[in-house]
Amino acid sequence: MTEYIVKRPSSDEMLELAHITYESRKSSVLADDALTLESVTESVAEVCNDNDSVVVVAVNDGEIIGWTHVFAGFPTMMFIGSWYPVIRLSVDPEPVVLGLIDKTKEVLREHEHTRLEIELDRITEATQSYMDTYAEWYKKCGFGLAATEVHMRSRVAGVEKKTPPDEYGVQYLTDVTNAQIEGPFFDCFDNGQDELYLSLTRAQREVSFRYFFDRRRPMVETASFAIFWKSHVVGFIVVREDDGVADIGPVGVVPAHQGKGLGNTLLSYSFRGLYEEGIEWVTLDASFTNKRALNLYEKHGFQLQFLKAFLFWNK
């Protein structure tokens, strides 16, 4: 009989988890040239030693046959590692996967969180059927599809700033308070097409706002802006940088001021700031169904890299 156990793995158990993960990944469509046992061992150790992660293992007759992990990303929300659970190749995967997913739901309840989410990334034509299998497993455990998103990338160019119409002004986001941004943020996203955001409860949306505009998480100050109409914020763009690559998000214009080129203005100001900072590449994620936004991003040189699927379960 298989047991599903929450535990902090020992050093020997971490090595066993690494071997299970490496063999599983190596035989799947997720394998690439960067996949080595050493890199997987390092990644597994990082997960297992992270105080914000909870590791769940499936054990049968004293042998670990699969595992997964969850971590607290936002207050009230927990996340499952992408493309987990991982199952030993010699084992029929589905019953073990379902058991591990159900155990993560118990973990969520015990931590008094309200939402459990997994992001399946790097979806291409080659990995689509693999993703479909994972999605089907999660749906059998009560998860729903929150959104499919497009991950895009553009080379930063030294574009000229596109001046907004006369009645609008642009300010650095560092000169704007969260109290000024909060109302426009909810106006924009509550009435927008961001499917992942729209799948959140009101309390979860408020948590997301605080996370996006947490000033303790450094922004690229010269690339993050707000657009004002009279004394009101009507648009914004947030840019952060990780390992030399910039990432945009969130970005939005409130519905009453859309169609006036303000999205173009925000992106041009942001690109100019990134160019002056010497940052070469910028990425963003957008809802697959938001064709208007995708068209705008393509005009600024963004190209599709891969798709992401987000599945969720609310307590």
Rank of each mutant, 00 (worst) to 15 (best):
T68D: 02
H69Q: 09
V70R: 00
V70E: 01
F71Q: 11
F71W: 14
F71E: 11
A72K: 14
G73H: 11
F74H: 12
P75E: 04
T76E: 13
T76V: 13
T76I: 14
T76S: 14
T76D: 12
M77T: 14
M78K: 10
F79L: 07
I80K: 01
I80G: 02
I80M: 14
G81Q: 08
G81K: 05
Y84V: 02
P85F: 00
P85E: 01
V86I: 15
V86G: 05
I87A: 00
I87K: 00
R88C: 12
L89A: 13
S90Q: 10
S90Y: 05
V91A: 01
D92K: 05
D92F: 12
D92E: 12
P93F: 03
E94P: 06
E94A: 13
P95D: 11
V96W: 01
V96Q: 00
V96K: 01
V97E: 00
V97M: 00
V97R: 00
L98H: 04
G99I: 02
L100W: 02
L100I: 03
I101L: 07
I101K: 02
I101H: 02
D102V: 00
D102M: 06
D102F: 04
K103P: 04
T104P: 03
K105H: 00
K105M: 02
K105I: 10
K105S: 01
K105A: 03
E106G: 05
V107G: 03
V107S: 02
L108I: 11
L108W: 10
R109F: 12
E110G: 04
E110I: 05
E110Y: 04
E110K: 08
H111S: 14
E112K: 14
E112G: 06
E112R: 12
H113K: 11
H113I: 02
H113F: 09
H113C: 14
T114F: 06
T114G: 09
R115H: 09
R115M: 08
L116G: 01
L116E: 03
E117S: 13
I118P: 08
I118V: 15
E119P: 01
L120D: 05
D121I: 09
D121G: 11
D121K: 04
D121N: 15
D121P: 02
R122L: 12
I123F: 09
T124L: 08
E125H: 07
E125D: 15
Q128C: 06
Q128M: 14
S129V: 06
Y130L: 12
M131S: 09
D132S: 12
D132I: 05
D132T: 10
D132M: 11
D132R: 10
T133P: 00
T133Y: 07
T133M: 10
Y134F: 15
Y134E: 00
A135F: 06
E136G: 10
W137I: 05
W137K: 03
Y138D: 02
K139G: 13
K139L: 07
K139F: 08
K140L: 05
K140A: 07
F143N: 06
G144V: 12
L145S: 03
L145E: 10
L145R: 03
A146N: 09
A146C: 11
A147V: 02
T148D: 15
E149T: 14
E149S: 13
E149V: 12
V150D: 13
H151E: 08
H151K: 11
H151D: 07
M152Y: 10
M152A: 15
M152E: 12
R153Y: 03
R153M: 11
S154T: 15
R155M: 12
R155A: 14
A157N: 11
G158Q: 07
E160N: 15
E160I: 07
K161R: 15
